[in-house]
């Protein structure tokens, strides 16, 4: 699971209000290079929950990867192209699409219900009596 997926996923456990963002506890993660797509990243920027994304990078032990507040579109573009090593676009790409969480846990922020991540796949299954109505 990558952080773009983490940015959209929420808990549906009984008692949760929004169930979002899921706290991330990481045991193992890897990186795998992928081709950056500048247009995609720019289009994604306003749709992201930036605070959730930054928190996720912190839980990976990568506090410097992203700035605390979201870059503006102009800042993103001015800082260099998506394939320039170290540019803001490149780092956003890395955070969203190159980091793979392999083992760990997602924790519902409202109920503390844990969802294990095993071999890269989070298990969000709930028993019928645990589901939010």
């Amino acid at each position: 699971m990558r952080l773009l997926t983490h940015n959209m996923l929420a808990s549906n456990a009984r008692g949760a209000s929004t169930g979002y963002p899921l706290k991330l506890q990481v045991v193992k993660w890897t990186t795998k290079e992928a081709e950056p797509n500048a247009d995609f990243l720019r289009g994604m920027l306003p749709k992201l929950d930036w605070a959730a994304l930054v928190a996720a990078t912190h839980s990976l032990g990568l506090p410097g990867l992203l700035p605390e507040s979201p870059p503006t579109d102009a800042e993103l573009s001015a800082d260099g192209a998506a394939d320039d090593e170290g540019s803001a676009l490149r780092r956003l790409h890395r955070a969203l699409l190159e980091i793979h969480i392999e083992e760990g846990t997602l924790v519902c922020p409202d109920t503390e219900r844990c969802f294990p991540i095993s071999k890269g796949v989070p298990n969000m299954l709930l028993h019928e009596d645990e589901v939010r109505n």
Binding site: M1, L9, A10, N12, Y20, G120, M124, L125, L126, R132
Partner: peptide, 14 residues
């Protein structure tokens, strides 16, 4: 490809 194990009726996806 990212994968999620979930019952579609209980999915909570922003």
């Amino acid at each position: 490809i990212d994968l999620i194990q979930c019952d579609i009726k209980n999915l909570n996806l922003r």
